[in-house]
Design a binder for these strands. Structure first.
Length: 532
RNA sequence: GCGGGUGUGGUGUAGUCUGGUAUCACUUAAGCUUGCCAAGCUUACAACUCGGGUUCAAAUCCCGGCGCCCGCACCA
């Protein structure tokens, strides 16, 4: 049994992860979060919120998982996530049709069979009868982009600002074989930070520029300060470097092993269709090697531009000039009194075209539905005037840290898993960080004596009243109860013994050292709270 | 998706070759006990991946589905 098997066994036994729909045979790529798993996932997501919403002051939104066809068509997912695949009947290899000149097996020279598109999105329909096509979203980001204009206004038209979303994404994986590392329905936490493309510096960079980070640019792996990485153009902007560091801080805080964390740069041929530069935070797993858990991409203006073009709504920002510019401009002013009667129903469209034309020639011809239409001179005026321009419009660039919550969840479990031996028996401990641990403290009466039990229950209640998740247990030997808590990563255990009756104190046991400390009952809440 | 391997209580297993409804341990639960690291005793719960076939009889043999593991492909 390798660590993956041991961990997944523990996860099932103790209520972290269950295979979904197991009574019907199960289906690959889906997992249930059990009682402890759900709590731990909440803790992980809330820690993420602390980083991005509290510390960075970003805006959280929540958008539908069902996403209109048009959105994903514009974003490129409909086309880019679809591969036409064919299979050779002789050698049984599969090929992407678009990689070949003809649909013929390059080895056996015979035509491919079973040619079908492989689309990684789950299609669905909205409504009954007059339906609209839709997909389950492959990422949460598009929901942020499609409301950019409203969010930009909410942010009072200042850049940079960030918007985050935590939620489910869906990808119909061809072969989801890596357990919770490749799920068909998965949780992600994404931040989209909108920048002026002329200014990808970061206000917080100065404070963190001497911190180090482990970088692998596919040529070499080195530990650099962020300043060095930016100056040597290994990372191309301060902003991107900042979010690499933020990601590192978050992951380490969540309990990732520093030795099992690195950042790897995507080679140009592995960049996603929307990405300009991308770094993955990779976490090491014993069985699967380096796992991509966070993607930090410079998506440039790709998405906002695509949605602006497809929807006709300008998803843009303005850059105010320090000193307004005065420019002389010529402009065409259509004369609707003439245009209207002359062109009837076409007049409206002609007006729009005229207003966008640059008045250069005296002769104006307009192309409407392939028809060349001459516009008489008396249908418009050309005026020239001086205008004060205070701002210019541009499409913001997007930097996107995108976290695979389930993958991080699994890697934290793996990095926290320790197996030792105690009295010739295998002893397992999950050394979860207190902030991540689903249960913060066990509460035990040393023996099943009503005098101790009643005090224990009172302490248990007090802790819960103060927002500390407890686990009351009076069954089995004290050692067994400690072992149960160790296996699910509970950092503290409180034991009420006969001395408690005399001096109102209890022992608090530390999971990792097994050391005990005696403290007054009145100090318990403070003791635990200060360590979370 | 292709090929190979594999599937027994919550977990790990014996039994499969050579057909006769299932072994052991841990866990869990109830109780007795227990004065700090999975102690002990009693009792209890609990399984043959699913469907079809062969047979008097299938965990066992055959076929298919599903899951898992490995390789190829796919994905990033």
């Amino acid at each position: 049994m390798d660590i993956y098997d041991k961990l997944m066994t523990l996860a099932k036994r103790r209520g972290f992860l269950y295979p979904s729909f197991e009574i019907y045979g199960g289906v690959a790529g889906f997992y249930d979060y059990g009682p402890l798993g759900s709590q731990m996932k909440n803790n992980l997501e809330n820690l993420w919120r602390k980083y991005y919403i509290l510390n960075e002051n970003f805006l959280e939104i929540s958008t539908p998982t069902i996403t209109l066809y048009e959105v994903l068509k514009a974003s490129g997912h409909v086309d880019e996530f679809t591969d036409l695949t064919g299979e050779c009947p002789k050698c049984h290899n599969s090929y992407k049709i678009e990689d070949l000149e003809k649909p013929v097996c390059p080895k056996c020279k015979i035509p491919l069979e079973n040619i079908h598109p492989v689309n990684l999105m789950f299609p669905t329909k909205i409504g009954v009868g007059n339906t609209r096509d839709a997909f389950l979203r492959p990422e949460t980001a598009q929901g942020i982009f499609t409301s950019f204009h409203l969010l930009y206004r909410y942010a009072r038209e200042h850049l940079p600002f960030g918007v985050v979303q935590l939620g489910r994404g869906y990808r119909n994986e061809v072969s989801p074989r890596q357990g919770p590392l490749r799920m068909r329905e998965f949780s992600m936490a994404e931040a989209e930070i909108f920048f002026d493309p002329n200014n990808k510096t970061h206000i917080g960079f100065n404070e963190i520029k001497h911190e180090t980070i482990r970088l692998n640019d596919n040529i070499e792996e080195q530990v650099l300060t962020l300043e060095e990485a930016v100056n040597n153009k290994i990372i191309h902007s301060e902003a991107l470097a900042y979010y690499l560091y933020l990601t590192q801080s978050f992951l380490l805080d969540a309990g990732v092993d520093r030795e099992k964390l690195r950042f790897r740069k995507h080679a140009s041929d592995e960049l996603a269709h929307y990405a300009q530069e991308c770094w993955d935070a990779e976490l090491y797993s014993e069985r699967f090697g380096w796992i991509e858990c966070v993607g930090i991409a410079d998506r440039s203006a790709y998405d906002l531009e695509a949605h602006t073009n497809a929807s006709g709504v300008e998803l843009i920002a303005s850059r105010r000039y320090e000193t307004p510019k005065k420019v002389r401009i010529k402009r065409i002013i259509p004369n609707m009194k003439k245009l209207g009667p002359l062109f009837k129903e076409k007049a409206g469209r002609i007006k729009t075209i005229l207003e966008e034309l640059k008045p250069e020639d005296d002769e104006i011809n307009v192309n409407l539905d392939g028809e060349e239409i001459h516009i008489p001179r008396d249908c418009y005026e050309i005026i020239e005037k001086e205008e004060t321009i205070t701002q210019e419009k541009f499409i913001p660039h997007v930097i996107e840290p995108s976290y695979g919550i389930d993958r991080i969840f699994y890697c934290i479990l793996e990095h926290s898993f320790y197996e030792t031996e105690k009295n010739n028996e295998i002893y397992r401990i999950l050394k979860l960080k207190p902030i991540i641990a689903p249960i913060k403290t066990g509460v035990f009466p040393l023996v099943n004596d009503e005098k101790l039990v009643s005090i224990a229950k009172k302490i248990d209640k007090t802790l819960r009243d103060n927002g500390i998740q407890t686990y009351y247990d009076n069954s089995g030997s004290i050692g067994r109860r400690y072992a149960r808590m160790d296996e699910i990563g509970t950092p503290f255990c409180i034991t009420i013994d006969y001395d408690t009756l005399n001096d109102n104190s209890v022992t608090i046991r530390d999971r990792d050292t097994t050391k005990q400390e005696r403290i007054p009952i009145d100090n318990i809440v403070e003791y635990i709270s200060s360590r979370l």
